[in-house]
């Protein structure tokens, strides 16, 4: 701790003490720190309480920046997106055959829980809507309503050919909506009839890269 003379005019006479403006109160943060004479009894990991950057921070690199043992500097958005992508809570929205493969993906062999994905029953508690199955004109208002009930940020995976583009009902299905993206905005399309659980996992990994803003496998960058 620095020892200050109570009288600022006495301080002004001391050449070792730089003072800007007489009569002004000095904020300790604006004064340069005096190097300490002896190392205090602190942990050896903390470098005597001094933060020394090990490299110049590059703000257009991806990922957190480790600048000291145990110290990580990261932007708030990146941390938020990392957390969001690693705990996507999925709404159990199985419409047709793809729902069976979604159930298999949730089960033991192709575990979706290791990605942080939990199937939830209510749209209010979920981030991810996996539309698995054919959307018909009768069910489309319900899909839209469920999507609107989800709180933002929310993402949609169109699983299967029917949700992507209407699948084999494309030409003659009078009651089938040709793709769920006619009703709600979709982030990732997973094709297959039905897609294997591995394909669904691939789509989810793709979605995570999209959320985190990393370059995705398909060469498209972007944040949602």
């Amino acid at each position: 701790m620095r020892e200050r003379a109570e009288d600022p005019r006495e301080q002004a006479e001391d050449p070792t003490f730089p003072v800007d403006g007489a009569g002004e109160v000095d904020h300790p943060a604006e004064q340069p720190d005096e190097p300490l004479k002896e190392p205090p009894p602190l942990s050896p990991w903390l470098n005597n309480g001094v933060i020394v950057p090990t490299q110049a921070p590059v703000h257009d690199s991806y990922g957190p920046l480790v600048i000291g043992p145990g110290i990580v500097v990261h932007s708030v958005e990146d941390v938020l997106e990392w957390v969001r992508s690693h705990s996507l809570w999925m709404l159990m929205f199985g419409l047709a055959c793809c729902a069976i493969e979604m159930m298999h993906a949730n089960a033991s062999k192709f575990d979706l829980d290791r990605f942080g994905i939990m199937p939830r029953g209510s749209p209010r508690q979920s981030d991810l809507l996996i539309v698995s199955g054919t959307v018909t004109y009768k069910v489309a208002p319900m899909v839209k309503r469920v999507y609107e009930q989800m709180a933002e940020p929310r993402w949609v995976i169109a699983m299967g050919n029917c949700a992507t583009a209407g699948s084999l009902y494309f030409h003659d299905g009078y009651s089938v909506v040709k793709g769920v993206d006619q009703v709600i905005p979709v982030d990732v399309y997973v094709s297959g009839c039905p897609p294997r659980p591995e394909a669904l996992i691939d789509g989810i990994v793709e979605l995570r890269r999209l959320i985190e803003g990393k370059p995705t496998d398909r060469g498209r960058e972007g944040r949602s």
Partner: peptide, 24 residues
Amino acid sequence: ILLPEAWEGHPLRKDYVDRVGIER
């Protein structure tokens, strides 16, 4: 029973005009 209540027309008739159909 199978179609929405407000659907017009009866689809399995041979003269049903499919307004959402795409030429196959």
